[in-house]
Design a protein around this nucleic acid. Sequence first.
RNA 1: GGCGGCGUAGCUCAGUGGUAGAGCAGGGGAAUCAUAAUCCCUUGGUCGGUGGUUCAAAUCCGCCCGCCGCUACCA
Length: 511
Amino acid sequence: MKPKFYVTTPIYYVNGAPHIGHAYTSIAADVLARWKRLDGFDVFFLTGTDEHGQKVEKAAAAAGLDPRGFADRVAADFRDMADKMGLSHDDFIRTTETRHTATCQELWRRIADNGHIYLGHYEGFYAVRDEAFYDESELTTKPDGTRIAPSGAPVEWVREPSYFFDLSKWQDKLLRFYEENPDFIAPNSRRNEVMSFVRGGLNDLSISRTTFNWGIPVPDAPGHVMYVWLDALTNYLTATGWPDESAERWGFWPADVHLIGKDIIRFHAVYWPAFLMAAGLAPPKRVSSNGWWTVEGEKMSKSLGNVIEPRNLVATYGLDQVRYFFMREKPFGADGSMSHASLVTRINVELANDLGNLAQRSLSLIARNCEGRLPARGEATAEDTALLDAANALPGLVRDKMDRQVFHEALEDVWKVIRAANGYIDRQAPWALKKTDPARMAVVLRVLVDAMRPVAVVLQPFMPRSMANMLDQLGVPVEARDIASLAAPLADGTALPPPSGVFPRHVEEAA
RNA sequence: GGCGGCGUAGCUCAGUGGUAGAGCAGGGGAAUCAUAAUCCCUUGGUCGGUGGUUCAAAUCCGCCCGCCGCUACCA
């Protein structure tokens, strides 16, 4: 039986339209999910939308819709974005589904039964936009007398009864958990921040609201709906069918990794494990957070008008090209920048020139000089062996990098082999061997195919369509494209299709 | 204010004690199988500043400057 692997994206808040940040985290999760499938795991890849809360209620009203209708519309947009990004998710969860209500309410009951919830009273300055309370000291007063939160959101004085989660009691348990699970939070800089935050002491957390209705009702507490983050985080559990042990996805919890943006680390790395432990459940194994993109050197913002719609990016540069750029250009956990120039450089230099042209020049030599059939392997020279060894080491190298979400390093490992292959073909010069030693020429061309095979196989998660095309051209059977299949050599004499470019160069449109 | 991180070639960054590295960009050459692609060679840096430890520091320690993140908040 295959080992299980459960990876998630955040569920996206339907308050606004999909943007680069959503697409980026989702593509990273997809790359990881595809890699694990390729590497022999039974994968469950979840994405979806977060649809409750006062912000949605208000946004819906502003749009002249009821919350449900509004959420339907935006959720459909996120689903479309997922399709356009080529996501291979196994489930798309919406927090407005009945299965989710059931799981949330049961989780609440377990936490309450274990004595971690009490009814209290909250009053304070509340910012609807942030869905958060603020202490008076955090606020600034504008000249007109209104107060605003540090985020710039307007606040209002709110007084309401509220259920509380006894988060203050979890400080030591959380710290012990972080110590015992050093890989729980990535990157390490974020881990330090989280631990520092928890060491500073935790306050009990208000986990219900009575001022609006668009949420999941608290069990046996009329008028109370659940705090949006308790609702939202629980989606990861809902999708596994919990608490139904006969559910199809039972056994996937705890999740192997939650991929998230750096803005929601606290919820995932502090609140979420505390909620779960309070309910007697295992925390996720890892929370890996990513940084932001700047565009042409500037932060993306609505006011600057430079917000990039991921589907437009894909329309301009191509899906696999964008996926590659995202994973290649910056470390996953760090901030980074994208620009037209940097996209074109990656696409033309690395995809078209380095990899695409390597395939093209090798395969056209085979087409012309070997009757379009895969040459047999011959006696390997030291140079042959060096190249093949480097190529065959890729699965192990990539596996290690994937497990740590250092995607850009995995790709660098692959490109080292691609560059070595270009050096190899130049030195061996099969076009010259054609006249002097045709037998050796055939061996050289076979070495190139054998080196490109693992390259194309491990790149599949990053660029599924392009690599399917390349593997077709390399004569790798569709059913033999996983990591395990690399152990068996390709059949000598396999007929190869006429070569055609895998990656076109990006040429500027004439103005 | 506290905690943490960063500051290395024009650009993006790797390098944690032993005479400075990669990719891109720039320059020169080779080759001409290939998507005018490739390969080789090469210019370029007082490794933020300063003081110290050491036979030896980008690498360890102190201080300073600049940038960033998390967090806290007083008169």
